[in-house]
C-alpha cells in the first residue's frame, strides 16, 4: 500500500548552511508521527518544505499518491493538508470566528470553479447576491466552526467576536489549531502547538491532540515537550543538524544514546549518560 505521506531525500540549504539533509520517512494513515530534536535541527524547515512554503533543493514529497514536491500551498490546502505555524500566525485583526472560517475557505462552493475571470466573477456575484444556498452553506460552516471551537471547552467560545490580536498566546495557538481543523484536513501538521503554554494548558492541548488522533486524523507533530511527545506518538523521528539520527517507538528513542547526545552534547557525555539512563 502506498504511504499516506512519503518524504524522500529532501534537502534544503540556506547559503552554506544545510538546514535539511536527506530527510526520509513515511507517514501511514491514522498515524501520529512526531519530529523532535534540538533547536536548529531543521524541523520547521522540513515542515515548510512539505507544506509548500519553501522549495526543496532536492528530493520529493508524495501525498495521497500525488507528487506534491514544490506544490503551491493553496493546492496542498485543496488536497487536504493543514498546518499550524511555530510562532503562531493567526490573522490578528480578524475575529476568532472569522479566523476559523478562513480555515474552511477551500470547502466553500463559491471558490471551487477555477476558471479564470469567470470563476472569480461568479464568486463575486454569489458574495454580493447571497442566494439561499450560499446562506445555508455559510450557516453550516458557522455551526461547524462552533463545534470545532468547542473542542477547547470554554477557552474560545466566549471570545468569538474578539479580534485575534487581543487573545492570550495560548488562545492564539488554539485558534490556529481550530482554523486548521476547519479545513477538514486529511493530514494535520502541528508545529509546536504548546509553545509558550503553562503545564495546565499543555495538558489540555495534549488531550485535544489525543482526541484528534483517536478520531482517526493523521498528524505530523513537532514538539519540544518530550513528555507529551512520548505519550501521544506512535512513532518518533529525532533530527539533529538537518539529519535523522534516530527513529522508532517512544521508549526506544528516549533511551537512544544518540538522542541523549544530540540534546546534551557530543562530548564527555559518558559519565552523565551512565547515571542518567536507568
Amino acid at each position: 500500500m502506498a504511504a499516506f505521506l512519503e518524504v524522500r531525500g529532501l534537502q534544503k540549504h540556506f547559503g552554506g548552511v544545510t538546514a535539511v539533509a536527506d530527510a526520509l520517512f513515511d507517514l501511514r494513515e491514522g498515524e501520529l508521527l512526531s519530529i523532535i530534536g534540538p533547536n536548529g535541527a531543521g524541523k520547521t524547515t522540513l515542515f515548510n518544505l512539505i507544506s509548500g512554503l519553501d522549495a526543496p533543493d532536492a528530493g520529493s514529497v508524495h501525498f495521497l499518491g500525488q507528487d506534491i514536491t514544490r506544490a503551491a500551498p493553496e493546492r496542498l490546502a485543496r488536497l487536504g493538508m493543514a498546518r499550524t505555524f511555530q510562532h503562531g500566525r493567526v490573522f490578528g485583526n480578524l475575529s476568532v470566528l472569522d479566523n476559523v472560517l478562513v480555515g474552511a475557505h477551500t470547502r466553500l462552493r463559491a471558490v471551487k470553479p477555477a476558471v479564470p475571470v469567470v470563476g472569480p466573477l461568479l464568486e463575486f456575484a454569489l458574495a454580493a447576491v447571497r442566494p439561499a444556498a450560499v446562506k445555508a452553506e455559510e450557516a453550516a460552516l458557522r455551526d461547524d466552526a462552533m463545534r470545532i471551537l468547542s473542542l477547547f471547552g470554554e477557552r474560545l467560545l466566549p471570545r468569538l467576536d474578539h479580534p485575534a490580536f487581543s487573545l492570550s498566546y495560548a488562545n492564539r495557538r488554539r485558534v490556529e489549531i481550530a482554523r486548521a481543523l476547519a479545513l477538514h484536513p486529511k493530514l494535520l501538521l502541528l508545529d509546536e502547538p504548546t509553545a509558550g503554554m503553562n503545564p495546565t494548558e499543555t495538558a489540555e492541548m495534549q488531550e485535544v491532540v489525543h482526541d484528534l488522533k483517536r478520531s482517526g486524523l493523521t498528524i505530523l507533530l513537532i514538539e519540544h515537550k518530550l513528555e507529551m511527545v512520548m505519550r501521544l506518538s506512535d512513532r518518533i523521528i529525532v533530527m539533529d543538524d538537518g539529519r535523522r539520527i534516530a527513529e522508532g517507538l517512544p521508549q526506544a528513542v528516549r533511551n537512544d544514546p544518540a538522542v541523549i547526545e544530540a540534546y546534551l552534547g557530543h562530548r564527555e557525555t559518558g559519565g552523565a549518560q551512565q547515571e542518567a539512563v536507568p
Binding site: 493553496e74 490546502a77 480578524l94 475557505h105 463575486f124 482554523r179
Partner: peptide, 27 residues
Amino acid sequence: RLLNSHLGRSWRAIRDDSVAARSYGVV
C-alpha cells in the same frame, strides 16, 4: 455586504498574513 461575506474575511486574511492565507487556499 461584501465585507460581511467570505470575500471580506479572505481579503483581510491576505492583509494580515498572506503566507498563512495561502496555506488555507486563499489565493
